[in-house]
Design a binder for these strands. Structure first.
Length: 459
RNA sequence: GUCCCCAUCGUCUAGUCUGGUCCAGGACGCCAGCCUUUCACGUUGGCAACACCGGUUCAAAUCCGGUUGGGGACGCCA
């Protein structure tokens, strides 16, 4: 079994493309076959090498390795010409001299009569030769139907007269999508073509091309689309869609891959899958047929699940770039790990955790003025001084809790009344990781310094 | 408009092929309780779906037909 992922470098690798890549990869790895990467860069105007780099980097980040070097279509033009010439020689293709104006005219007329716009076959039997500005078209059968057993949707069929004489080679001498795909999939020995739903109506055209070429057919499967919350095809206006954007927001590749796999594929009630486990379990039979809406909430849940599985130093290392991006000094791995441990269960993404851990790394934490006004009253400051005095004895969670309890009893209030001024002084806010953890991570020196600054605070 | 595809809780889905074990299961989210020094985590419980109409059958979420709804494609883009 040989599969491939064939993105065009006209944009970043997006969520939909990543899922197509994942399923192709899974199918190949499950069957111990191979998985090829092909860059479809025949659209010279829109293709860009930086997008190719993004695609490669994103695939690597997700852990989807391909076999062999990536194949670039622009390096295979001679091959496509061979296929074209064979089609021409066998009478399955012809030269067409129709210009854009005439084509536009034909399209307008079709729309006017409420039928499907398609080429009218004007040059089909004119026996024209190549000429500047001319294209090569496929001679599509006018009768019969083209059908296949779709790997995921079951039987699909099209009447041939719905299809028109598609352009195989453009006026610029480069192949169009369908020509290049067929030539590549055939010459590369691809056995299973898994692609997005949006390609279903290319499939009958490609099958007809294979047949005209006298070539054997690969199996075709079409994955349902991924939609935005408005049920429209996922796009930029739904927010982040590129894989890199998710990386930058602080998602773990294992979370994204797990989420993408569950979007359309299932294995009973199981929700958590590692890449290796998926390889063993993957089956096209369990791939759904209907479109799915991308749900950030569930991705968040999976991300925090994987985040919780990281040990402190691992998490610290992943947090570091996010902290540094905020201009903080996070070079000390030991401190980083301790700080990371306290925010592990307090964020859905690395970015969110870094924000919650930022106070550890600041030389001076800005005190939330509104809360300071409420908490750093004369009584509050008295509590801080008492805390400072008791600090040397607070060497365990139990001791600290006992301190809070007794302090609360003394002033006839709840433990929070004692804890919150301390929290504000140490973290700048009234929500933070566990207070004793904060004290432990910060160490006595920093604790004293921060309490000292809070004591100097004035409204 | 034409063609193609799809249809189970708000969302992802199990169950559909091989009708009965499903007055439909799990997960996310949501709501309530518990835990608690804050925020979270955790935990317990709860709300919530077979699009509609007809047919086949002793029996239909499961099979068939239609309707409605949704998506996709109609490029010398891929």
């Amino acid at each position: 079994m040989k599969t491939r992922f064939a993105p065009s470098p006209t944009g970043f690798l997006h969520i939909g493309g990543a899922r197509t890549a994942l399923f192709n990869w899974l199918l190949a790895r499950h069957s111990q076959g191979s998985f090829a990467l092909r860059i479809e860069d025949t659209d010279l105007a829109r293709s860009n090498a930086s997008f190719t780099e993004d695609i490669l980097a994103s695939m690597g980040w997700l852990g989807l390795d391909h076999d062999g070097d990536p194949v670039y279509q622009t390096g295979r033009i001679a091959l496509y010409k061979e296929y074209r010439d064979k089609l021409l020689a066998d009478g399955h293709a012809y030269h067409c001299h129709c210009g854009p104006e005439r084509l536009e005219e034909v399209r307008r007329k079709a729309l006017a009569t409420k039928s499907k716009p398609r080429y009218d076959g004007h040059c089909r039997d004119l026996g024209l030769g190549p000429a500047p500005g001319s294209v090569v078209r496929f001679r599509c059968p006018e009768q019969g139907e083209t059908a296949w057993m779709d790997l995921i949707k079951g039987p699909i069929s099209f009447l041939n007269d719905e299809l028109d004489d598609l352009v195989l080679f453009r006026a610029d001498g480069l192949p169009t999508y369908n020509m290049a795909v067929v030539a590549d999939d055939h010459s590369m020995g691809i056995t299973h073509v898994l692609r997005g739903d949006d390609h279903v109506n290319n499939t009958p055209r490609q099958i007809l091309l294979y047949e005209a070429l006298g070539a054997g057919l690969p199996a075709f499967g079409h994955l349902p689309m991924i939609l935005g919350p408005d049920r429209k095809r996922l796009s930029k206006r739904h927010g982040a869609t590129s894989v890199q954007a998710y990386k930058e927001m602080g998602y773990l590749p294992e979370a994204l891959v797990n989420y993408l796999a569950r979007l359309g594929w299932s294995h009973g009630d199981q929700e958590i899958f590692g890449l290796d486990e998926m390889v063993g379990l993957f089956s096209l039979e369990q791939v759904g047929r209907s479109a799915a809406i991308f749900d950030m909430g569930k991705l968040n849940w999976l991300n925090s699940h994987y985040l919780k599985g990281l040990d402190d130093s691992e998490l610290g290392g992943k947090l570091r770039p996010f902290l540094e991006e905020m201009g903080l000094d996070a070079h000390d791995p030991g401190f980083l790990a301790k700080a990371a441990g306290t925010v592990k269960e307090r964020g859905k993404t690395l970015r969110e955790m870094a924000e919650k851990a930022a106070f550890y790394f600041k030389d001076e934490v800005p005190l939330n003025p509104k809360e300071a006004a409420k908490l750093l009253t004369p009584e509050g400051k008295e509590g801080l001084r008492a805390f400072l005095a008791a600090l040397p004895g607070l060497d365990s969670d139990e001791a600290f809790d006992k301190y809070l309890e007794e302090g609360a009893k003394k002033i006839g209030a709840k433990k929070g009344a004692v804890a919150q001024p301390i929290r504000l002084a140490l973290t700048g806010e009234i929500a933070s990781p566990g207070l004793f953890d904060v004290i432990r991570v910060l160490g006595e020196g920093k604790v004293r310094a921060r309490i000292g600054r809070a004591l100097e605070w004035k409204p």
